[in-house]
Design a protein around this nucleic acid. Sequence first.
DNA 1: TTGTAAGCGTTATCAG
DNA 2: CTGATAACGCTTACAA
Lengths: 343, 343
Amino acid sequence: MVTRKEVAELAGVSEATVSRVFNGLGPMKPSTKERVLEAAKQLNYHPNAIAQSFARRRSGNLGVVLPYMPKVHLFSAYYFSEILSGIGEQVREQGYDMLLSLLKPDESLDYSALYRSQKVDACVILGARDTPEQRQSLMKLQAEGHPFCLVNQRFEGLSFREVDADHIVGSYQAVRHLQEEGYQKIAFLNGSLGYSNSLDRLEGYHKAMKEAGLDVKPELLLEGNYSRKSGYEAAERIWEQREHVEAVFAANDRMAIGLMQGLRERGWIAGRDFAVIGCDDSDAAKLSDPPLSSINVPFYEMGKEAARGVLAGVLQGEAANHTKVKLPTQVVVRQSSKRNPSK
Amino acid sequence: MVTRKEVAELAGVSEATVSRVFNGLGPMKPSTKERVLEAAKQLNYHPNAIAQSFARRRSGNLGVVLPYMPKVHLFSAYYFSEILSGIGEQVREQGYDMLLSLLKPDESLDYSALYRSQKVDACVILGARDTPEQRQSLMKLQAEGHPFCLVNQRFEGLSFREVDADHIVGSYQAVRHLQEEGYQKIAFLNGSLGYSNSLDRLEGYHKAMKEAGLDVKPELLLEGNYSRKSGYEAAERIWEQREHVEAVFAANDRMAIGLMQGLRERGWIAGRDFAVIGCDDSDAAKLSDPPLSSINVPFYEMGKEAARGVLAGVLQGEAANHTKVKLPTQVVVRQSSKRNPSK
DNA sequence: TTGTAAGCGTTATCAG
DNA sequence: CTGATAACGCTTACAA
């Protein structure tokens, strides 16, 4: 590998000058600069990133933390690829790289370990959940002064840097949409309350129902675990009280689709016999039959914003910053939530 | 940050000894080792990975290259997450990290750039396509002696390290399955021939048809681009010659699902009026209606094997290695390919 | 079995 | 504007 030294020799300058040229530092004679650049080109010199990291005492890496859950697929892979793309785009703009870290499920969740070896300067944490363990881990991170940004998860009572979609408004929109289509008996199939999203969605649901002067009967509140299967199983419970349900808002698309499948087996077709709207606007929403109405969540932008914020923090050497960003959602209407024909 | 020096002082040994302890090198008195470990623990010392990389002249990073195609979703996100998980598992075992690199579509595809800064020791390249540009780029990589492994893509006439699924056998199995279910008029909806997979699948299709003594009429060969939309559009062409088609093998699940949607609009239901089998056994196959039969491709294992092989190469400092690995596929039967009732 | 010391390729500070 | 030079934290001969 060709080093700075060789470039300096060829250009007839000191090594320091070569560095200055490559880092755009200090005033310098254009002719010198040119000579250096010329020599570098001729030798095909490229600075060694590892040596730079070493000298700068910054890795130039943004850690991206994903809970690794084989087969469980908490994320629609849609989420996954959009958010990574967003982070990737931003990181590139800032001259950083992404170091992917897949957490093993059994692993005692010690986020600090990621920073210990100093291979990342900051992290974006995806798919966190509100458990005592994780709270502890995150508080430790913060106490140690390690910059990080949570995506899609708040921790009630704790304040971290975070980027989220506005799930309260999103749910509100979803339920309003169903109401506007003429439905009143609206059930809510939520996901685990370990995710702050779920709480937010519940709040949005309540708000919309209340504003419309509609009762929220406890029987209308179901809980799944964000899997298709749990949606499928919820179909049975919905079916039992079919007199009292005209429409369902599901907290993600996978459950919505499972629900449609379950009800279809009983002869109820979404968009004909009842309405469904999901959440995430994932690929599957377009693939399902009938196509699923959903709440679009700007995952790409969320990833990008998370990376932008936390890297800006690093580069400014800020002590601690608890910036919170909430991005807007949008209703996407497809066939599954068509107007109630009986109204 | 606490450094080796401090540990050495506290333990009353030289810095070299501390390194030896942490690298498990050379014979050493157990008592010394213990003292060092004790000191390290007390100070909460952890070796600085960047400094290690610097001194070892190895980054400890495996680059993972993904063509970034917003919205196009070449990959089922299923593919994406499985394969990354496989790579992730393997790098962890070898003490490596994954550096994710999302290639922009417009970007002149220069793989060498990834190695130039020496931030990766090797790469796993996903989603490559057979274009003159990419051929050139890969040949350059090889000429420069940079280790890499292609996943899911061969280049006819060129020999690289590669891991693939056995798509020839996979397709053969798919078509055989349809035949065993009693179908004879079997169309093939392939993807772009820029992917070697597509060629392989075509070969498997031909083989199965030929062995069964069935003609392959050109009209039975359709080409999409692996998107749901292209499957949907293919439905029209299938419909036009519905007299001559009883079953369809689609080169991925997305197209298969699009096809089912398109034909459903014309009153043809998969698993009743015709049969479909897809390929990938992605999430969507389970979510579709009816559930889609498919060819399971061991993405996780492919990722793992690719990482294993290429890292083994790096660690042994091998000059060049063109190992080829082919992993087996499996038919997964669901409703969409049910037996032809008229037989 | 352990210590000494020469790198590794930069950045960054301080003179000049 | 440019050149010396001291870090940076570790690995790895080589010596003892």
